[in-house]
């Protein structure tokens, strides 16, 4: 089978590509001439410069967009650049910053709590993200079945997402208390001592993962939307070919869902690194027990606002940014091998 020319595919899409393949040589030449002239047109115009009319449009556009542009510069770009500068200084937010070069970054390497916090955060990311994907995807698959009262179930699984995380954390303190919490009541019935949950070092991080699974409603909705976008024809075709449910899942559902998984993966990597409110509130900001819940963002926050080390906190923030950036880039690079956009190529 002959392949479409790439530029043709981009401008016209798959449907035209099919008719291109069906066309004769004469028609093809005419099409190619047409697309070539369309593409060269803007170049000619830009070589002549913009007309007064275009300039006016441009100027008015800038003026209309200026509140946003100014906001972006002032409240995003400036603070980002300022924090980069502060990361090379010693700064308490009041006194003039003192340039210390790489000292903050060198101090980080020697700082044991930095490594503990980084380890805790990575541990949480590595364990919780795959689980979250499987769990949210699995829930969506179940909630997508034609079961009785599925709207009720969907609502129930979405509800925790509506509760502010501060309120959730406060309720969890009571629920997960190993001595008096309700969560251990069923263990008491069995006559065994339930786990110590967030209270002890052995269970604290797994407890956080468990809690993160609780508020997965938003992701379930994404997967549900994705599942409902999978064309029914594909399942019909698969059924005609004799594929059973598992084969259909493996060869139709899963590939069609990879863009959603990809999106979930990227956002949850960022989310995992910024995991803050729940451990902060559940430990009163201490990272107890035994620093196992000292997450990176908590440590950053404490340096900035409890110890007034804005310079060190900025350095911590930049290290976190670079690590997130690197991981995200790796995920994006890997996407071309496993993410399937229904035949389109976005990488």
């Amino acid at each position: 089978m002959s392949v479409c020319p790439a530029e043709y595919f981009r401008s016209a899409g798959q449907r035209f590509c099919d008719s291109y393949q069906a066309s004769t040589g004469e028609q093809r030449k005419a099409w190619l001439r047409m697309t070539a002239s369309m593409q060269s047109a803007p170049e000619i115009r830009s070589r002549q410069g913009w007309s007064r009319h275009t300039w006016r449009h441009f100027r008015n556009g800038i003026i209309f967009a200026s509140p946003w542009i100014i906001g972006l510069l002032l409240f995003w770009i400036f603070p980002i650049l300022a924090s980069l500068y502060y990361s090379f200084t010693e700064f308490n937010a009041i006194q003039t910053p003192r340039w210390v070069g790489m000292d903050n970054f060198i101090a980080m390497v020697k700082d044991t709590i930095f490594w503990t916090a980084a380890y805790n955060t990575l541990w949480f990311a590595v364990v919780s993200i795959p689980l979250a994907i499987v769990w949210a995807f699995g829930l969506a698959l179940v909630l997508n079945r034609r079961i009785h009262g599925r709207i009720v179930y969907r609502t129930i699984y979405f509800l925790p997402t509506l509760v502010p995380s501060v309120a959730l954390a406060l309720v969890w303190i009571y629920l997960f208390n190993p001595a008096t919490g309700l969560i251990n009541v069923p263990f008491d019935w069995l006559g065994i001592r339930g786990p110590c949950w967030n209270a002890c070092a052995a269970w604290s991080r797994p407890t956080m993962v468990l809690l993160a699974m609780w508020i997965i409603g938003g992701q379930v909705v994404l997967y549900l939307a994705g599942l409902q976008d999978v064309p029914q024809e594909l399942y019909d075709a698969a059924a005609v070919d004799g594929a059973n449910v598992f084969q259909q899942f493996r060869s139709v559902t899963l590939p069609m869902m990879t863009p959603v998984i990809f999106y979930h993966l990227v956002t949850s990597v960022i989310g995992a690194f910024q995991f803050f409110e729940i451990p902060y509130i559940m430990t009163g900001g201490t990272g107890a027990p035994d620093n196992t819940l000292m997450f990176y963002s908590i440590y950053l926050f404490k340096n900035a606002f409890a110890y007034f080390k804005m310079g060190y906190a900025s350095a911590l923030a930049w290290v976190m940014f670079i690590v997130i950036l690197a991981i995200t880039l790796v995920i994006f690079r890997s996407a071309r091998h496993w993410v399937y956009y229904g035949g389109a190529d976005f990488t």
Partner: peptide, 16 residues
Amino acid sequence: GVDNLDAFTAACTGSA
């Protein structure tokens, strides 16, 4: 028992 001490700490987080 350290686990008992931990249970108390967790139960009394914040102003609980």
